[in-house]
Write a protein that binds this DNA or RNA. Structure first.
Lengths: 339, 339
DNA sequence: TTGTAGGCGTTATCAT
DNA sequence: ATGATAACGCCTACAA
């Protein structure tokens, strides 16, 4: 009866060398004679040997695996982030273990523990939900605890802490700039729609309010609305709330499309009577009519920076890495704006 | 200086028992006296000990991990499938290692090997791309090879093989039924748009052709078009190809929205002059106007069945499991059809 | 350049 | 019910 899995001892025996030599060959040590290397490699190729990752992990305490945590993967922004992260990590030979935590603290903590228990080499948190809402700092304590074990990287969220590194968008500037453009094109009653109190939502609001202030447009609290993150919910809410506005800035494209639906249902012309700007430049903005002007957050670039920094930390042991990197956004103009 | 990580020996020493006893407590063996259990548990809680998964894996050759392979996660269908799979697997205590393989054979093989090398307990392949196109059976050989090591589950694709289990939609019937409805509502020149030659695309085409045949509608090859999977590409293609049609069935919602854009650009009324049906019932169908009638493939149910069967196989070692399960689709009617 | 032996942290099989 | 000890497969000083 054939042995099921072959190990380093089998190779050593077949190649008539010691396991140490086999190990050296496998790990590319230079202290092996070319002749021996060839001999061992031949055997390895022949029987198709691959080292047992558990045994490797036990000694080295790593499995070349990165933990990826998202609130939900069923979201265009998250899934494209994961797409880029996985792609770039794979290039460096790292695999991903994925966890979906939901938006509640308990799930975040539980999934973080789960991933850490797998002894990942690093942890990447995707989304500004992991930054908390800025009010209760202790809500991000679990991140700093995790960072005591492995470096933690946050995509699009700001978290202070030793061994935690963040890459964020310049959301303040992006919204500031687009608000200014709206103002300069004669819009005065600009609706600001957001679905959360996340770090990124807060920054967007700051940009909005700053632009109004700088242009001496009176700030009207009723124009800052908190909405549910679905197209129809936004449409219906606008229909029932009776606030007048001549422009909309939404914290994501779903919400913006909701506003667009409202306009089309009311027979309001877009962009002539109302200008609409979304966020994330996701594929949903291509489906509507007119197509959505949206702020692109350069997610691929964010992921690129994140992975590069991650590799720098865990592979090159670089110290003194910047805690925070800021990536600019870009306004992608389509049919819902006239500027 | 404090020891960094504590192990079973530390617990044993602190609780004044042997490591065997600690192991029994941790694994919930019933051959431990209540008194000892309490004593050991107290120590474990106090110092926050968790077993080293690598050491466990070394002995048991498993880490309670499932491999998830998708062509790309940046796609509404795949990401929602992964969402449901992860959620349901987590309930059973299994974690996911994710791989994005692309649509080419080489990437699929490479990522499969990568995941297998991690000693996952099972492998789930998401998407009909893994079923090949039916012409070259050897293109799915790597799946059968993988199935020699762990059970393989295919979501929405049919692959024959020992130890491989599939859960698919009844795409033939779904498209057949909707085609019949179109015919009964007076449509005769029904455009069939697909972006691939995957297993699922082939089944959809079968349903389409069968319905035509059963209703003695002449089959026109120019009405079966192969398109690129983007909204604008479809719109432009239809604009330039000069084929007349009065209805559209698309193999996904992006393509359907492309057809809708074409109609709106040409001033063709939907659904009065052209009826349009998409596939997958994804969120993009809500963004367009009128909203898209689409075939819902009940992806959550597919994922549910997949996970249940997976658990049955790897945990209850059930033999004689059905190789293939078929889940019906459902037509979700919205504004692009008048039936 | 090569081989020997100890350690990584569990689980499981024996005794006791 | 409990404890001693041998796997599990690899890496790596250290020795030769």
């Amino acid at each position: 009866m054939k042995k099921e899995v072959i190990n380093i001892y089998d190779i050593a025996e077949m190649a008539k060398v010691s396991i140490a030599t086999v190990s050296r060959v496998v790990n590319g040590s230079d202290k092996v004679s070319e002749k021996t290397r060839k001999k061992v490699m031949a055997v390895i190729e022949e029987v198709g040997y691959t080292p047992n990752v558990f045994a490797q992990g036990l000694g080295l305490n790593t499995m070349h695996t990165i933990g990826l945590l998202v609130p939900t993967i069923s979201d265009l922004y998250m899934s494209s982030a994961v797409y880029y992260l996985e792609e770039k990590l794979a290039k460096y030979g790292y695999d991903c273990i994925l966890g979906c935590s939901g938006f509640e603290l308990e799930g975040k903590q539980r999934q973080t523990d789960m991933i850490l228990s797998k002894h990942v080499d690093a942890l990447i948190l995707v989304g500004s939900t992991y930054a908390g809402n800025g009010e209760r700092v202790e809500d991000t304590d679990y991140i700093r605890e995790a960072a005591e074990q492995v470096p933690v990287f946050v995509v699009n969220g700001n978290v202070q802490g030793e061994n935690v590194f963040v890459t964020v968008n310049d959301d303040v500037k992006a919204v500031y700039d687009v608000t200014v453009q709206m103002i300069e094109h004669g819009h005065e009653r600009i609706l600001f729609l957001t679905d959360s109190q996340s770090y990124s939502a807060i920054k967007k609001r700051m940009g909005y309010e700053k632009a109004l202030e700088d242009h001496r447009i009176p700030f009207r609290p009723e124009l800052e609305m908190h909405v549910e993150n679905t197209v129809h919910a936004v449409r219906d809410l606008l229909q029932n709330c009776n606030v007048a506005f001549d422009a909309v800035i939404a914290s994501n494209d779903e919400i913006a499309v909701g506003a667009l639906k409202y306009a089309s249902k009311k027979g309001i012309l877009v962009p002539d009577e109302i200008a609409i700007v979304g966020y994330n430049n996701s594929s949903i903005g291509i489906a509507c009519e007119p197509e959505l002007t949206s702020i692109d957050n350069h997610i691929e670039q964010i992921c690129h920076e994140t992975v590069e920094r991650l590799i720098a930390v865990i592979e090159r042991k670089e110290k003194n890495l910047e805690h925070k990197i800021v990536i600019p956004c870009e306004l992608v103009k389509r049919g819902t704006t006239d500027f």
